[in-house]
C-alpha cells in the first residue's frame, strides 16, 4: 500500500474542504471494505484518505413528510437513508423492513455479517461496481442521491448517478450524503443469481418495482445489475408491461426483451449467453412473484 495522508474531519464543511483541496487525489473512506481491497491490491493509490465516519449528519434512517411529491401513496413519508448507514443497519431497520423489504433482501444477500457491519450504503453506491446489489433495487424504488459539495446540496436521480464502472457523477469536493426513497408505489423485489448463498458477487442482479391496479400494470421499473457498465434500466421491457394486464404472456415478453437489452461481458463469474439467460429467468420469476401469478 502506498503512503497517504489521513484526515478525520468532524463536520461536513470540513470534509468538503479537504476533498476540494486535494482536487480528486483524495478518497473518502466510510466502511472501507471496497476501498481497502483496491488499495491492498495496488489498484488504487490515493494521496489522502478522508474518514467521514464522524459526520453525524450522514448517519441514520429518517422519515420526512411528503409535501411535494405527487406520487401514489403520497400520504406516506419520504425515507432518507444516511450514506453512513451500514448494510447491517439497513437490513435490520424496522422502517426499511416495513416499507422496502426488498432492500432488506438485497442487503441480506451481501457478503457476511462482519462485512455488513462495516460496509455502508453510501460506499456501495460510490464504489459504483456494476454488480452492486443495492443499486438496482434503489433505482427500481426511484431513489435519489443527495450530494453535498462546495456549492451546497444537490439531488440526482440515482439512475443518473452512475457513469461507468467505479465512476459516478460526484465531482471533486463532493460526497454522497444520503439516499432518498419516495413512498413505495407497489410491490418490489430484488433477485440475485450467484453460486453461493452469501459471500458472492452477483452474476446477475435484478431490481423490480411495479404498481398494479386491478390486474393492470400502471408502472414498472426493471433494473439489472452486473450486465452492463452501470446498473441498467431496461425501458423497452418496462414499456412492454405498462398499461396492460400483468399477465404471464406479457411478463414472458418483458423478460425476453430485458435479456436483449442487457449488455453483459464474459468473465470468470459468467459468460455472456448465461448472463442474458439469467436476466430472462430472474425477470420472469420476479415479475411473476410480484404479480402473485400462479405458475
Amino acid at each position: 500500500m502506498q503512503p497517504f495522508d489521513y484526515f478525520s474531519p468532524k463536520t461536513l464543511p470540513e470534509a468538503v474542504e479537504i476533498l476540494s483541496r486535494h482536487n480528486g487525489d483524495a478518497r473518502v473512506v466510510a466502511g472501507g471494505t471496497d476501498l481497502l481491497l483496491k488499495m491492498k491490491g495496488g489498484r488504487l493509490a490515493p494521496k489522502a484518505i478522508v474518514n467521514i465516519k464522524r459526520l453525524a449528519e450522514l448517519r441514520g434512517i429518517s422519515e420526512t413528510s411528503n409535501s411535494k411529491l405527487q406520487t401514489p401513496n403520497y400520504h406516506l413519508p419520504i425515507t432518507t437513508i444516511g450514506a453512513l448507514t451500514t448494510l447491517e443497519e439497513l437490513r435490520r431497520s424496522p422502517i426499511i423492513r416495513e416499507r422496502y423489504p426488498s432492500l432488506c433482501d438485497a442487503a441480506n444477500t451481501m457478503a457476511s455479517v462482519q462485512i455488513r457491519n462495516l460496509a455502508t450504503v453510501g460506499g456501495n453506491m460510490c464504489n459504483a461496481a456494476p454488480s452492486a446489489d443495492l443499486a438496482p433495487i434503489f433505482i427500481a424504488l426511484d431513489a435519489s442521491a443527495v450530494i453535498a459539495g462546495p456549492g451546497g446540496e444537490r439531488r440526482v436521480p440515482l439512475e443518473e448517478f452512475f457513469v461507468g464502472p467505479g465512476k459516478t457523477v460526484l465531482e471533486s469536493g463532493e460526497l454522497l450524503a444520503s439516499l432518498e426513497a419516495p413512498p413505495p408505489v407497489g410491490p418490489s423485489l430484488y433477485l440475485k443469481h450467484s453460486p453461493r448463498a452469501h459471500m458472492d458477487i452477483a452474476v446477475v442482479g435484478v431490481g423490480l418495482a411495479a404498481q398494479l391496479s386491478g390486474g393492470v400494470c400502471e408502472s414498472a421499473r426493471i433494473v439489472l445489475g452486473a450486465v452492463a457498465p452501470v446498473p441498467l434500466r431496461v425501458r423497452r421491457a418496462e414499456a412492454e408491461l405498462i398499461g396492460g394486464p400483468f399477465s404471464a404472456e406479457r411478463i414472458d415478453r418483458a423478460a425476453k426483451i430485458a435479456a436483449e437489452e442487457a449488455q453483459p461481458i464474459d468473465d470468470v463469474r459468467g459468460a455472456v449467453w448465461y448472463r442474458r439467460k439469467m436476466v430472462e429467468v430472474l425477470v420472469r420469476r420476479g415479475l411473476t412473484a410480484i404479480g402473485g401469478i400462479e405458475n
Partner: peptide, 8 residues
C-alpha cells in the same frame, strides 16, 4: 463482529 483486516 467485523473482519479486522478490512478496516484501517
Amino acid at each position: 463482529p467485523i473482519t479486522s483486516c478490512m478496516i484501517l
